[in-house]
């Protein structure tokens, strides 16, 4: 039972984080808060990838001459870390684009509230 808990609690926390992001997208009326919810959702996916790449008793993905490389259980898998490394930076850039579009919307309509925007667009 304890082994099951230690093997799975990281997944539960990422699920909770993902639900916090979905809560922000579904419930908040302000578009800025919706965008923050999107960012939280993205971070939860990144943390999920990093957590499944974990290996007990393994070291970081930098070659140490004292630790033999032919036994692959000694090192973490570098592929998920690489993918998430690029995903974080691209996430920051796309977040900048999202906020840019929000600034453009605010300059044109004068509001960021969802309901008021829908009324003003029609």
């Amino acid at each position: 039972m304890l082994e099951f808990f230690t093997g799975h609690y990281a997944y539960w926390f990422t699920v909770i984080l993902l639900c916090v992001g979905v809560y922000g997208i579904m419930f908040k009326k302000n578009l800025i808060k919706k965008t923050i919810g999107l960012a939280i959702l993205q971070i939860s996916v990144v943390m999920y990838w990093v957590s499944i790449a974990n290996k007990w008793d393994a070291t970081v993905t930098t070659l140490d001459p004292n630790i033999p490389v032919d036994q692959v259980a000694n090192y973490l898998n570098p592929l998920p870390h690489t993918l998430m490394l690029t995903a974080i930076v691209v996430g920051v850039a796309t977040l900048g684009v999202a906020f840019t579009l929000l600034i453009a919307i605010y300059n044109r309509y004068g509001t960021l509230d969802e309901q008021e925007l829908l009324e003003k667009i029609q």
């Binding site: 799975h8 957590s51 499944i52 974990n54 290996k55 007990w56 008793d57 393994a58």
Partner: peptide
């Protein structure tokens, strides 16, 4: 049902 985290 996911595999245990960190299981080699």
């Amino acid at each position: 049902d996911l595999p245990y985290r960190g299981d080699p």
